[in-house]
Design a protein around this nucleic acid. Structure first.
Length: 281
DNA sequence: ATGGCAGAAGCATTCTGA
């Protein structure tokens, strides 16, 4: 089963490239970030024509996430829903459309677009850290249910200096600070593993290249798009790949898609309690 | 130290991103 994540930086602008990529790669699940479109304007039809179902959580101009899957998603949740009942005014939970989750093929799929944070001195940085703390408590809730988790998306954090083309230059700055890395590790705790690092221990692998300064041509990138999986899934993981080819297209997203291949055959499908979580393989 | 490039909104220019 192929599971992919891609920050497309506007789904309407990138539509043909995304459809083309799906036709080439044939993913089972594709999580999108920065769709930048309200739900009623999302281009559903091209995906439905290819046999995919689409779940969206969008807003005007900014942010926006979507889950595109061959098997229809169950138990779709938008935002940090676990806060909503007791924290109606929490802008972290309700304002910016940055998280959508669903159960697909016995796995809890969590698609996130983590705030960028601008700079360490910015109010947006505080928002980023608060948002990550909310994500940590969201995962605490999921963990209580004992689900297999695949948490993926644009994290806007390089987990280590190996994930930055020039770590000295960006040391301690946005996407590279200890504060962000600690907040990320608090989300992951001991329960989630970086799929990419199971296979690749070296530097030089990027998922994002700045539009400016010829960064892609000079291969000056960062690895900030990640797929984290439950420990129980890691033994079933066959590969994790960053496909940088779409970044070389005309008018590309500044991010490349990342994907994993999981051997689904021996996952226990009785995992979920809810009856409507049963599915066909 | 600064700006550079791109997208959306909306029609000149600003806001946001990373």
């Amino acid at each position: 089963m192929l599971i992919a994540t891609w920050n497309v930086n506007s789904i309407r602008t990138r539509l043909l490239q995304v459809i083309d990529w799906i036709n080439h790669v044939n993913p089972d699940i594709l999580c999108l970030q920065e769709t930048k479109v309200m739900d009623d304007s999302f281009p559903f039809e091209p995906f439905k024509k290819l046999g995919y179902s689409v779940e969206v959580f969008g807003q005007k101009s900014y942010n926006g996430v979507a889950i595109i899957s061959k098997v229809k998603a169950n138990n779709i949740k938008k935002g940090f829903y676990h806060f909503n009942e007791f924290d109606q005014n929490n802008e972290i939970s309700l304002d910016q459309k940055r998280l959508i989750s669903a159960d697909i093929n016995g796995i809890k799929i969590i698609n996130v677009y983590v705030p960028n944070g601008s700079s360490l001195e910015s109010d947006k940085f505080e928002y980023k850290i608060n948002w990550l703390n909310c994500l940590a408590s969201f995962l605490d809730e999921q963990e209580k249910k004992g689900e297999l988790i695949c948490l993926m998306g644009d994290f806007n954090i390089a987990p280590s200096d190996l994930d930055i083309h020039d770590p000295k230059k960006y040391e301690g700055g946005i996407m590279a600070s200890d504060i962000e890395r600690n907040a990320l590790n608090n989300v992951l705790k001991e329960r989630l593993i970086d799929s990419f690092r199971i296979f690749e221990k070296n530097t030089g692998h990027w998922s994002w290249w700045d539009y400016r300064n010829n960064a892609y041509e000079l291969n000056k990138g960062w690895r900030i798009d990640h797929i984290y999986i439950s420990k129980e899934l890691s033994s079933k993981l066959k590969s994790c790949v960053i496909d940088s080819t779409p970044r070389g297209d005309l008018r590309p997203s500044d991010h490349a898609p990342v994907m994993i291949d999981i051997n689904l055959s021996d996952i226990n499908v009785d995992f979920f309690d809810d009856e409507d979580d049963f599915f066909e393989i």
